[in-house]
């Protein structure tokens, strides 16, 4: 019963909000080209489904592609850093540079140097998504319990055994926390890059649909594409929250339920 309430509450709120919006727009006679009502947006979504779906799929590919690259790169480099403090000191500032680089400024430049637009978009989304995973995984690898490290030393564990059986599981909660952050950032990076720099011909994502609709003053279509983007962000968040729960629930504080049944 409790779970049902948990699920229904946000859905009901959303429904109420949409209803308010619908009637607000109608009552105030706001034209569709300024603020379309949800019914108009839904209609536009259905009418334009083919092109919107294709663009949605492209944006999803870029988002998850960049995320995959960010994970591999982040985990690999974090492992290297944990084995060599000297390398970490040398290269961590470069990683920080990536974090603070404004994609809006850099995307057009990347597009000039990289030939394939898809590769350029992947790169932009990767830049945004990479740092949280790296930073969190580095912290996680460092957070290994001292006594467990001593225990492994006592039993003369090999470096590989130590990595596989001790450091990796220790780092997992931190990595997942980084992943939750990077999931949303990857989407933002993909969309921002495409918005600012544009995309070519057939390989276009939701950002291009938004721009196109904006240029052609088709505001309902613009909102429909935006709605899909928002939905994607929510789904990504839910996906990684569920993943975190599945992997950590049985042992980590972050996923333990308190007495009231709410997650901490």
């Amino acid at each position: 019963m409790k779970r049902l309430t948990d699920v229904m509450l946000p859905i009901v709120t959303l429904f109420l909000f949409a209803t308010l919006w619908e009637f607000g727009v109608r009552w105030a006679n706001i034209p569709a080209y300024t603020l379309p009502a949800p019914s108009v947006i839904l209609h536009s979504l259905i009418v334009n489904w083919t092109s919107l779906a294709a663009s949605w799929w492209f944006t999803l590919q870029i988002t998850f592609g960049a995320l995959l690259l960010a994970c591999s790169g982040g985990i690999l480099i974090a492992s290297v850093f944990s084995l060599s403090p000297a390398l970490e000191r040398a290269f961590f500032p470069i990683a920080v540079v990536l974090q603070v680089t404004p994609i809006v400024a850099v995307a057009p430049l990347i597009l000039i140097y990289v030939d394939s637009t898809t590769a350029a978009l992947l790169l932009c989304a990767w830049i945004v998504a990479f740092f949280p995973i790296l930073s969190n995984t580095v912290t996680g690898l460092r957070m290994t319990d001292r006594n467990l490290m001593d225990l492994f030393r006592l039993y003369r564990a090999s470096p590989w055994q130590r990595l596989k059986l001790l450091r990796a599981p220790s780092a997992l909660p931190y990595f997942l926390a980084g992943l939750k952050i990077s999931g949303g950032l990857s989407l933002i990076g993909a969309v921002t890059a495409e918005m600012v720099a544009g995309a070519a011909g057939r390989e276009t994502g939701l950002a291009s649909r938004i721009l196109e609709a904006s240029f052609r003053t088709e505001t309902p279509k613009m909102f429909a594409a935006l709605a899909l983007l928002v939905l994607t962000g929510v789904l990504i968040f839910m996906l990684f929250t569920a993943l975190s729960r599945v992997l950590l629930a049985h042992w980590h504080d972050a996923e333990q339920l308190t007495d009231t049944g709410r997650t901490l």
Partner: peptide
């Protein structure tokens, strides 16, 4: 004209 040739132009003459 073909979409395959299209590249985004960002008002930079460099490319």
């Amino acid at each position: 004209f073909k979409d395959e040739a299209l590249r985004p132009y960002n008002y930079n003459l460099g490319p």
